[in-house]
Design a protein around this nucleic acid. Structure first.
Lengths: 251, 251
DNA sequence: TCATAATAGCGTACGTCGTACCCAGATCAA
DNA sequence: TTGATCTGGGTACGACGTACGCTATTATGA
């Protein structure tokens, strides 16, 4: 019912793992597992059955190994989540096709790519990414975003702030719509059933006159799908940022 | 490490509890607890020690009662979270002082109030509010927001979209900064220590030349506090929304 | 007045989780 | 061949949410 913490494990261990700080030891049995296979299996399982179903036992079962075998490769579940986070940021090849375009188009592209990432991996929204653990894939994406803002006369802090503002808007929107969609799929309760269940009680509340504005709303105001909502706010946000960028531009 | 699900329990039970559908039975011992006291204790505990520390056992201990006694008042932990969510939306009195002001000022007020709510109750960001359970306090806040957009020539769907766009931006920003701050407090690892730990590995990655933009950044670009970040993006977003509203205004 | 139905508090127990600890078997250096 | 070192993983512990059922308390109806 709550959020998992990425970055909750040993920081140095997570970083070392992210940057492939591994050197096969000379002695001992040849491993049957690998870090990649574990992270892969974990991501697949989370995509398929949700974060709640992701346990060390279930990941091990997915790989047909004993639970404790995972701990030969990963210090704990927190670090595994860190690795999963960077894993879904890659591969980065498709970014390259968008180099050199206008900054606004690139930002829109990044926003939609981020949305798409959340769509494919809704569990991302449930992982408390309190500390941005910098892995290779995440860094590459960030580097790409920065490059698109070159030559506009923005300071470093302003570039970062622009990128983050868009990311925060997309993430906030995804949190609402993609988690809702996931709830529909996992609980089996459709939106209609949900509102039908709330209806009678809400009607009574409306009858008191305490919520004049809400009760006056047309029925279908909440029938907006996620993508529509994303686009609706993205345009004004980019409009506003464009004004800001233009005001900074060297004349 | 993951997010809790509000609305995961029996929907009708949650709604009934939210709207005080209680009628003291005539027989039986007089209760020592009450729904309000339980929700209060749970919110206090979550505020103080974080969502991870919120268990049915710990809430019961907070109230000096047996764990299972809670189940006389609340069907389960999911429903308790639903109640906590609506609880922190109130009291609503302070909203009234802002009625009738210009819409943009009111929206800024709502944005900052939302931010403040996340600041006081960071665990809100970790609760998977997949379905908006409508309680009295949440409905009142929503009603207030709608009222401030009256008379601008917006359709219902547009009003709702404007409110949600701002909310999503604030929530996304809070997710980044407030959860980070919480991680600092709970892990005891400061930002300096965090970056110092990542430094050596990152330096090596930079040395490969794969991340030219990021490695060129000044050191202090990430030293932005949450409020600064909120304001930075809020202004362009409102600018953009203002243009949209003006384009819709009846001439 | 008293038996009875209804309710409150909660102890016990089950199945889940993350993971500490430890040992058996495999592999290579000496 | 021997010993060091490593992999796989079994067992067990203390957390969790909560189903079940017992005891004590209360107001009602006889």
């Amino acid at each position: 019912m709550t959020t998992a913490y990425g970055g909750s494990g040993d920081l140095n261990r997570s970083m070392a793992l992210l940057w492939h700080g591994k050197n096969r030891p000379s002695r001992g049995p040849t491993p049957t597992l690998s870090l990649e296979r574990i992270v892969d299996a974990a991501v697949n399982l989370a995509d398929r059955e949700g974060l709640a179903a992701l346990s060390m036992r279930s990941v091990a079962a997915e790989l047909s190994v004993g639970t404790m075998s995972l701990y030969r490769y990963v210090p704990g579940k927190g670090e595994l989540l860190d690795l999963m986070l960077d894993h879904v940021n890659g591969p980065v090849e498709e970014l390259e096709g968008h180099r050199g375009k206008d900054w606004r188009g690139t930002m829109e592209f990044i926003a939609r790519a981020t949305w798409e990432m959340y769509n494919q991996h809704p569990w991302l929204l449930q992982v408390n990414q309190a500390r941005p653990i910098l892995g290779p894939n995440g860094l590459a994406a960030f580097d790409f975003a920065l490059a698109s803002l070159d030559g506009l006369g923005l300071h470093d802090r302003e570039k970062v702030a622009v990128i983050l503002a868009i990311d925060h808007y997309v993430t906030g929107t995804a949190r609402t719509y993609i988690l809702k969609q996931q709830a529909v799929e996992q609980s089996g309760i459709t939106d209609e059933e949900f509102w039908a269940a709330q209806g009678p009680i809400i009607e009574k509340a409306f009858a008191t006159g305490a919520y004049p504005e809400v009760s006056r709303l047309e029925e279908d105001v909440f029938n907006i799908d996620g993508e529509e909502a994303l686009e609706f706010g993205l345009r004004p946000l980019l409009d506003g940022l464009e004004s800001f960028v233009n005001s900074k531009r060297v004349r």
